[in-house]
């Protein structure tokens, strides 16, 4: 789901070679047959260049999202209101780091190094999920992220567990197993405040929901009719469910959850449509989405600058570790 909006393929990659060799045509035929049969593609297998590049972009951007996502949540670790909440939040952010790591590992099987991917993130070439460009202003934001953002992520991640590219599918299975507590803890944190908290706490929760609702449903990316590459992704078993379908599923599930919490979702057009058997919802501000994706959201610059700084500040540490390892290796060889 962190990748729904990002399967936009640059123009130059859409140009195909005019003439392809007999071998390549045959390899692609076998590849398509494997996909159609529901077989998995492994790292060593032949794959079309476009498949490789699309996956690399999708997986690495998913990884970047996990890493950048550590920042808005990490923002509240020192201020968590109880020791239990502090521990839960630390564990959650640590999980996200781990998820990023599994995904970088999966992406590396496609032939790019992690350093190259990080460089692409810092230079702005690679994207990450739009949602993490919003600020966490109150403790209720943390619970809301767990409820809405992780909820949306889970909805997208489950289908990717059946992705045709096996290293990505395996990483997603691992991630989904660990993800279950993320949404629950967020919802729980909000429920306690709504059910047992003070009027000030309830106001805090409602305020957070007001700010995070629309960005959350934007996470599913542009409408299907503005996502031209979805068809190819579906053909290759990379993308399993369309943006609009996932978005609708999310809205339907979340409206019910909001009732349990006792919060109002900030959409006056939200209402049950008995004919469609789904919730109708209001118009999404796609200008805001485009702005945020283009780098002009509330926190884009700060998120990237923070990651760049951590990387730059850490260079001497990484160099020292390598220097030590090489010295040890030399000593061993000499022995």
């Amino acid at each position: 789901m962190y990748t729904q909006a990002m399967d936009q393929q640059p123009k130059e990659e859409r140009e195909r070679k005019a003439v392809r060799s007999v071998e390549e045509v045959e390899l692609e035929r076998r590849f398509d047959a494997k996909i159609d049969a529901g077989d998995f593609i492994e790292a060593k297998d032949w794959m079309p260049d476009h498949y490789r590049k699309t996956l690399l972009r999708q997986i690495s951007q998913h990884a970047h999202s996990e890493i950048v996502g550590m920042l808005p949540e990490g923002n509240w670790i020192t201020r968590a209101p109880t020791l239990k909440r502090k521990a839960i939040l630390l564990a959650k952010v640590q999980d996200e780091g781990g998820h990023g790591l599994y995904l970088y590992a999966a992406a590396e099987t496609l032939g790019t190094s992690r350093d190259q991917m990080i460089d692409a993130l810092h230079s702005g070439k690679a994207k990450y999920s739009s949602i993490f460009n919003y600020p966490t202003l109150t403790w209720a934001d943390i619970g809301t992220i767990g409820w809405l953002v992780d909820g949306a992520a889970i909805m997208n991640q489950v289908p990717i567990c059946r992705c045709s590219y096996a290293p990505y599918a395996r990483a997603m299975i691992r991630i989904c197993r660990e993800e279950s507590f993320h949404q629950r803890q967020g919802f729980d944190a909000l429920l306690v405040m709504m059910r047992d908290g003070t009027p000030e706490q309830r106001a805090m929760v409602q305020d957070a929901v007001n700010r995070w609702w629309w960005p959350s449903i934007m996470m599913f990316g542009p409408p299907d009719d503005q996502s031209p590459n979805s068809a190819q992704g579906m053909r290759w078993g990379i993308k399993r469910v369309s943006n609009d379908t996932l978005r609708q599923r999310f809205v339907d599930a979340t409206v019910e959850q909001a009732k349990v919490l006792g919060v109002t979702l900030p959409d006056p057009d939200l209402k049950w449509n008995a004919e469609r058997e789904h919730y109708d919802f209001g118009a999404i501000d796609w200008d805001e989405f485009k702005r945020v994706i283009a780098g002009e959201g509330p926190c884009n610059r700060e998120r990237l600058a923070t990651r760049q700084k951590a990387w730059d500040d850490g260079a001497w540490v990484r160099d020292a570790a390598l220097a030590y390892a090489r010295k040890q290796a030399t000593k061993q060889e000499a022995a």
Binding site: I67, M70, L71, G74, I77, T78, L83, K84, K86, A87, L90, A91, V93, Q94, G97, G98, G100, L101, Y104, T306, R307, K309, A310, W311, D313, G314, A315, V317, R318
Partner: peptide, 29 residues
């Protein structure tokens, strides 16, 4: 140690340092 989250020199150390922080918080609890 919790302040290091998201700022460590390498992702693996983000995980390691927050692991240590978690253990210490657990002990203090």
């Amino acid at each position: 140690l919790g302040e290091w989250c998201g700022h460590a020199p390498v992702l693996e150390e983000d995980i390691a340092l927050s692991n240590i922080a978690l253990d210490l918080i657990g002990q203090s609890r």
